[in-house]
């Protein structure tokens, strides 16, 4: 195949269906849209929902928002479920209220980036785009 069209990264942004805080996730969604990404915005009920949607939607990156608890437990569950589904290659990014004591566990579970609020949107978008490009390259090989 010849030169591909410019990359339109596909991003899954998700949060728990019981988390009512959606300002951050919506703001990131709009920033990603303005950064040329397609954003699928859904709530999950269980971590396996995240994996199912990510596969059907053929996304390049997954971003999970936590504003009220469950940071480590849910992230680990998502990463494990991705691995079991043979998609351990999909980069996972987390954001929101990430407490200092969450960081180590999140990092060791393989999370690719952590956004704790206050980061420049530009940098957030760039991180997503970079991870998407990398993820596509890896899959193309």
């Amino acid at each position: 195949m010849s030169a591909p069209e410019p990359l339109v990264p596909r991003v899954l942004l998700t949060k728990s269906f019981i988390d009512s805080h959606d300002r951050a996730i919506k703001t990131i969604a709009l920033a990603l849209r303005d950064g040329g990404c397609e954003v699928i915005l859904v709530d999950y009920e269980t971590p396996s929902d995240v994996v199912d949607v990510a596969i059907d939607e053929d996304v390049d990156v997954i971003g999970v928002s936590f504003m009220s608890g469950g940071q480590v437990a849910v992230t680990q569950a998502i990463v494990t479920a991705l691995g079991e589904a043979g998609r351990g290659d999909l980069p996972v990014v987390v954001g929101g209220t990430i407490r200092p004591f969450d960081v180590d566990d999140l990092e060791s579970s393989g999370v690719r980036a952590i956004f704790r609020g206050g980061e420049k949107l530009e940098r957030v978008v760039e991180t997503f785009r970079d991870l998407a490009a990398e993820s596509r390259r890896r899959r193309a090989e």
Binding site: G35, E38, I40, L41, E57
Partner: peptide
């Protein structure tokens, strides 16, 4: 930008069914 927020899927609830494929 060429980007988009694809919001319809949020209305579908859980879609984990082997006989269903949904794509935004």
């Amino acid at each position: 930008s060429g980007g988009a927020v694809l919001g319809d899927r949020a209305r579908l609830g859980r879609t984990s069914d082997p006989r269903l494929y949904v794509r935004s």
